[in-house]
């Protein structure tokens, strides 16, 4: 049913597997359809993003650009919109990076809440060497690993292996056994209360760009919502029963 990816849902886990090594507008459209489904109908608590064996993604498909045609900025906007939507899904987002993860692939990796890598992973923000920009990785990467490291990764475009990615905090686990690492990671996320997960992630993502006075207002609004949801009410009920 999809041409650029496969999608399967198994109990609590929804898995998106990129079937093409390059990101094109068709893939953006299909990811949008999947987000619609995940927001509207899905009871999955975890979304796993992965690629083919040995390749997560090589980034943008340059075949969609023609030197004799006007350049279209709106395609980049659509890409950013789908990244932001994935980033806001009311699920835990886990990326599995086995092998090459370049350009747009590395950008997509940054919207995950946790990243599992295999020892052969090869992460590179290669856009600046190719004469363009790594999307909103300029925004996300600096927050994720610090401005100094982000400058080196984005401006010098080094290839980052598993050990360095782990030490930078770019990935959260390196393992040869992907299945085992995935189940450990899912276990670590615990019960995944979707409201608490979504609100916590949003406040964290906003933390660098919000001043304290606004942040505390935002926090109180979010906390008021969280403490009126079933999971917290269950927590205090269990506590009362003890």
């Amino acid at each position: 049913m999809y041409k650029t990816l496969t999608f399967e849902e198994n109990g609590d886990i929804a898995t998106v597997t990129l079937a093409k090594s390059r990101i094109n507008m068709e893939m953006v459209r299909e990811l949008t359809e999947i987000c619609n489904h995940l927001e509207d109908d899905s009871t999955a608590k975890v979304v796993v993003l992965r690629g083919q064996v040995g390749c997560f993604s090589l980034g943008i498909d340059f075949a969609e650009f023609r030197p004799d045609q006007p350049m279209d900025i709106h395609g980049f906007n659509k890409w950013e919109k789908i990244c932001a939507r994935i980033e806001r899904l009311p699920k835990a987002i886990i990326a599995i990076i086995d092998g090459d993860c370049h350009g747009g692939g590395a950008q997509l990796m940054l919207v995950a809440d946790a990243v599992i890598a295999t020892p052969r992973c090869d992460i590179q923000f290669n856009e600046v060497h190719l004469g363009f920009l790594p999307g909103m990785a300029t925004f996300r990467l600096a927050k994720s690993i610090g401005l100094g490291h982000a400058k080196r990764l984005i401006m010098q475009c080094p290839k980052i292996g598993a050990d360095e990615a782990l030490s930078l905090g770019l990935v959260s686990m390196v393992s040869t056994d992907i299945d085992e690492a995935l189940s450990k990671t899912i276990q670590a996320f615990g019960p995944i209360h979707n409201v608490a997960v979504t609100l916590a992630r949003r406040l964290l993502n906003e933390s660098f760009s919000t001043d304290f006075e606004n942040a505390i207002g935002n926090f109180l609004a979010a906390q008021h919502r969280a403490i009126h949801q079933t999971p917290f009410l269950d927590t205090i009920r269990a506590h009362t029963d003890e």
């Binding site: 619609n36 207002g217 935002n218 008021h224």
Partner: peptide
């Protein structure tokens, strides 16, 4: 319709706190 079908939100400027509360309750 879904919330993503809404392009514009025209909300009463009640005060900072109520705007925050709406933001975090309906995303």
């Amino acid at each position: 319709l879904k919330r993503r079908d809404i392009d514009h939100w025209i909300i009463h400027s009640g005060g900072k706190k109520v705007i925050d509360a709406i933001k975090y309750n309906i995303g």
